[in-house]
């Protein structure tokens, strides 16, 4: 921000010219890439990659999320402190997910098996069927 503090068409005072508008073509390019990645991830759903499926879709989603964060959310040009704060949340999310999942996986054998009946056909259906 400090680099922009003394441009020509502004009051020449520190802290008054801090806007950093992104060019429209840049934003449009990010949008096009995001749409393309969406198409890729939808198209991928018709190809069986086995256990790589979830990894691939999550990779694409993470690429998309990174693009949104860096450009739409302006983090690429923002104060690094904001980025650190935001990324720290993902550290805690990772801790949360891994510990809870490992706990669930270790104890899932002790869970009661789920055995229940499908819902009954509602009576109108019985009446309607010949």
């Amino acid at each position: 921000m400090a680099a922009h503090a003394h441009s020509a068409d502004s009051p020449h005072r520190e802290g008054y010219d801090f806007a950093h508008p992104l060019p429209v073509w840049g934003l449009a390019l990010v949008f096009v890439i995001l749409t393309f990645l969406t198409v890729v991830t939808v198209a991928q759903a018709s190809f069986d990659l086995g256990s790589w499926d979830i990894a691939f879709t999550m990779f694409i989603a993470t690429v998309k999320a990174t693009l949104v964060m860096l450009f739409f959310m302006h983090l690429a040009f923002d104060k690094p402190f904001n980025l650190i704060i935001f990324l720290s949340s993902f550290v805690f999310v990772a801790l949360f997910v891994t510990f809870t999942l490992s706990d669930a996986n270790q104890n899932s054998g002790k869970l009661e098996p789920v055995i229940d009946e499908p819902p009954l056909v509602i009576t109108e259906a019985v009446a309607a069927t010949p």
Binding site: G15, Y16, F18, F86, S88, F90, L101
Partner: peptide
Amino acid sequence: DTPEQQFDSGKLGMWLFLVTEILFFSGLFV
């Protein structure tokens, strides 16, 4: 003091709020 200070303060607050949003949704993802 300056518009930039005001903007940065608000933005920091917004990022903290977004962190709570991420953590909130992470429960659902778990």
